[in-house]
């Protein structure tokens, strides 16, 4: 048993190569920039998880999970917003799911980009409804709160509104959040692609 455990830790450690560690700050920056662009183009989506999915495609689920979670830790440190750490679990889950899809080489097939996006959206809607209910009484400080309000006003039950409203906004967002990094990784020059362990499972 003890031996098995140590081998798992060793495997985990091997995931965090120097290149993977350096990728994390960059992935987090991409998450932030995604939001900047979507605001500039006044798109009705967030695109603040493209960096997390990108990390998953280059360096696998564990790096993406940690990187995703740290996105929110850094926001917390930067703007003094402790609540954002709790929402880091959403990013963590996204990193894990996207990384798992990569690990299973599902993303070699284009159609699976769509499915992965949908599964991520579903998961993100569930986790963020749960977290925002526990931490912030059901609000998350973004436009989705308004949609939740509309659902509730229309007579829907609390949880139906929470999850339903999020599913609508999340699904388009997350399908794009998988598609955009996916097409970029496909087009990556071989010279750089081979420096990352997981690219061969996507291309």
């Amino acid at each position: 048993m003890a031996k098995k455990k140590s081998s798992f830790w060793d495997k985990l450690k091997n995931e965090f190569t120097t290149t993977a560690l350096v990728l994390i700050p960059i992935g987090i920056a991409i998450n932030q920039v995604g939001r900047l662009i979507s605001t500039a183009l006044s798109l009705p989506i967030f695109l603040d998880t493209i960096g997390t999915v990108f990390m998953a495609m280059l360096s696998g689920p564990w790096v993406a999970a940690i990187g995703g979670f740290l996105t929110n830790v850094v926001t917390a440190i930067a703007y003094g917003r402790p609540t954002s750490v709790f929402f880091g679990t959403v990013q963590l889950a996204i990193g894990l799911i996207a990384g798992f899809a990569v690990y299973k080489t599902w993303l070699k097939k284009g159609i699976n980009v769509l499915w992965t996006g949908i599964v991520i959206a579903l998961m993100a809607a569930l986790v963020s409804s749960f977290i925002s209910t526990i931490v912030a009484g059901g609000v998350s400080g973004s436009g989705v709160d308004l949609v939740v309000g509309i659902f509730l006003a229309a007579g829907q039950k609390y949880w139906t509104s929470m999850i339903g409203a999020r599913l609508i906004t999340e699904s388009i967002d997350k399908i794009l959040a998988v598609f955009i990094p996916w097409i970029s990784v496909k087009r990556l020059p071989e010279k750089y692609a081979r420096m990352f362990k997981y690219t061969s499972k996507v291309r």
């Binding site: 350096v22 662009i37 970029s184």
Partner: peptide, 30 residues
Amino acid sequence: LIQRLKSFVPLLGPLFMGSVQQAVEKSMAL
């Protein structure tokens, strides 16, 4: 919306490409 979404992609292409190059070079520097 579709037009705006389309213009999104050329913005991100260089971003991802540059990021990977940066990650490789930075890790060498480290």
